[in-house]
Nucleic acid binder design. Structure first.
Length: 597
RNA sequence: GGUUGUAUAGCUCAAUUGGAUAGAGCAUCUGACUACGAAUCAGAAGGUUUAAGGUUCGACUCCUUAUACGACCA
């Protein structure tokens, strides 16, 4: 398709030269897909040529259309509507294109000229609580973008930067010490991340009570927050941690271990993985060294209180603190260290950070600071900024207990898929294990598709009822369509139909067939665009379009009942190829497709 | 206060980056299973693209101002 469009551009450019004696570069022509209501596949917008050619838009369209049908065999017809020249591509050309797709081995990369060595950092959880709905959008996005970039032929490394240190981690540790009873995930049969999260919440609860108490006694709120006993203890614990206090570090290890186990179980359930883990406890010291380097080279400066700052006013940003007056590090400090480690490990030409848009400013500061330090890898940093997930009731808030837990949500979508699938009753003969697998595939398919179909940049609304729906623009709709093609293929094989027959001499195509080929041929464009914009939403939209087009095709033409042998084989091949394309597209979203459902 | 993002059908989202009569799904209504999977298909209805100006052959898209909601930085 990309090739065909280029050829048409070149032919149009030649036509303009021949007919009007004017040179217009092929890539300057405005070409777009023809709208459904008109005949044709490619449309030249002739408005933009009127000045250069000194003619009216209809006149230009008519002249170019006539020349092209006379000189380019692949163009079989044309029509002109106002400033639009609609070009019809010959059926033989569509069949040739289709033949090419059928013969292409699975997983053939789509070269885009984009980066070749990419690091995608995503997930990046705190080790004081379980994953929630917001993390799910992040994880699905990160995984999917990595898959999309792989499809362009790039080498992609997925990394997870674990936020395993800092005051918030101390809070859950302190909560456990003070309000816990030495329980373990085993003793209470609870996932480790949930156990730790419970004590983080308990800490916050008691801490708020202390603050409220102080405020009631007449203390100013800010002072109360800073001087509540629990906060003082947490700070004390953080200092002990930084000093390597044995008892504190050992508790830290134990509780983080529980969280890792819990998070890993969630990762396994949602089907995401990582090539490498980084831990902030392992990068903040390197970050401090970089701050010192900047200080030595006069790029950063110290204030009277001993804190270290970088001045990014020249870059349109503010002054930003790098080290506190007591010498402890801030987020930015450790991010400097992590960036350096990642580059040392992977020598990337593109480094993607999947982080919510609330950190837009922070990411600008990080990149500008690295640039100030003259780090060669700074320019390759790209912040894949995505919008937060809202609930019908508003924002998710820990305080108000409105946070949607990831593990629970996954259980719910699987259960919903199970209920609906059993209701349909089309799955006899599957074993218990196969059924469990199927419900998982469908439940996660619904959830992933729901979270990925929205433009990542945009804030989105999570509606629990809609997220488990199976009809319309949903993951299971696409999965269902795949299962249809698979079912049809099984029957065709039983009938001995050759799905790899020769189709070039088939003659005229039906509208539904032609549209199906056009959709299939778009795949490379879709991958290119999705990779360029880091947008799984484009792939989701495409998977939906494929499914929609196939179901229309399926309703309009007969496949196995078609009496003409050549046509029958062609339609089977079209179905098989559609199945392949759906499977490949869904794979880019991290979604599996079932053979039956 | 400063910076910044968003605003499209009742609801959730699209719109090939300035092109044709702004498209889908959900919800509502109508039709299609003794044809290959009805988790489907066909159709109806639903819009002053937040408001007001501007730029041009042409604006949901670009510019200005205002309003609403969000985020970040003090």
């Amino acid at each position: 398709m990309q090739q065909l469009e280029q050829d048409i551009r070149a032919a149009l450019s030649a036509a303009i030269q021949q007919v009007f004696g004017v040179t217009v570069a092929a890539d300057q022509l405005v070409i777009q897909p023809t709208r459904k209501e008109f005949a044709g596949s490619f449309t030249l917008v002739t408005f933009s040529l009127t000045k250069a050619l000194g003619k009216g838009p209809e006149q230009i369209g008519q002249a170019l259309g006539e020349w092209l049908t006379g000189h380019e065999v692949r163009i079989s017809g044309f029509n002109v509507v106002k400033g639009f020249l609609n070009l019809e591509v010959a059926d033989r050309e569509w069949l040739r294109l289709f033949q090419g797709l059928v013969q292409q081995p699975e997983g053939t990369p789509v070269p885009t000229g984009g980066p070749q060595d990419v690091v995608v950092e995503y997930s990046s959880p705190n080790t004081n609580k379980p994953l929630h709905l917001g993390h799910l959008r992040n994880n699905f996005l990160g995984y999917s973008v990595a898959e999309i970039l792989k499809a362009t032929g790039a080498t992609v490394s997925k990394v997870n930067l674990v936020n395993d240190r800092g005051i918030h981690i101390c809070k859950s540790m302190l909560g456990y010490q003070q309000f816990g009873h030495a329980e373990t995930p085993e003793s209470d049969n609870i996932k480790g991340d949930h156990l730790v999260g419970k004590y983080y919440v308990l800490f916050e609860k008691h801490y708020r009570e202390q603050v409220a108490q102080l405020v009631a006694e007449g203390v100013a709120e800010d002072t109360a927050k800073a001087s509540a006993p629990l906060m003082l203890e947490a700070r004390d614990m953080l200092q002990k941690w930084e000093a390597g206090d044995e008892e504190v570090v050992s508790l830290w290890r134990q509780m983080n271990g529980w969280v890792y186990e819990g998070h890993n179980a969630t990762y396994a359930a949602i089907g995401v993985d990582f090539d490498k883990f980084y831990y902030e406890s392992g990068t903040y010291l390197l970050g401090k060294e970089r701050v010192q380097e900047g200080l030595d080279r006069g790029l950063f400066y110290r204030k009277e209180d001993g804190s270290t700052w970088v001045d990014l006013a020249a870059e349109g940003l503010d002054q930003k603190i790098l080290l506190r007056s007591d010498g402890t590090s801030v987020y930015l400090t450790q991010d400097l260290g992590t960036a350096e480690l990642k580059y040392a490990d992977f020598h990337y030409d593109s480094s993607i950070y999947v982080i919510a848009d609330e950190q837009n400013y922070h990411m600008q500061v990080l990149q500008a600071t690295l640039q100030k330090l003259g780090k060669p890898y700074a320019a390759a940093i790209h912040h894949l900024s995505y919008g937060m997930v809202d609930l019908p009731t508003g924002k998710m808030k820990t305080r108000e207990g409105t946070v949607v837990d990831a593990d629970e949500l996954v259980r719910e979508v699987i259960e919903a898929a199970k209920v609906e699938t059993l209701k349909k009753g089309k799955i006899e003969g599957l074993s218990e294990e196969e059924l469990a697998q199927l419900f998982h595939t469908l439940g996660l398919g619904a959830l992933k598709y729901y979270l990925l179909k929205v433009d990542p940049k945009k804030r989105m609304l999570f509606n629990p009822e809609e997220s488990v729906q199976l009809q319309g623009d949903t993951g299971p709709f696409v999965q269902y369509t795949y299962a249809r093609t698979a079912s049809l293929r099984r029957k065709a094989q039983q009938m001995g139909i050759d799905e790899k027959a020769e189709f070039l001499s088939l003659g005229e195509l039906q509208k539904a067939e032609r549209e199906m080929i056009e959709e299939l041929a778009r795949y490379a464009n879709v991958v290119t665009e999705a990779a360029r914009t880091f947008s799984p939403a484009i792939v989701a939209q495409y998977a939906y379009d494929l499914a929609k087009a196939y179901n229309r095709f399926y309703a309009e033409v007969q496949v196995l009942q078609e009496p003409d042998e050549a046509k029958r084989a062609f339609r089977v091949a079209l179905s098989v190829q559609t199945g392949r394309a759906i499977k490949a597209s869904m794979k880019l979203l991290g979604i599996a497709v079932p053979e039956r459902m």
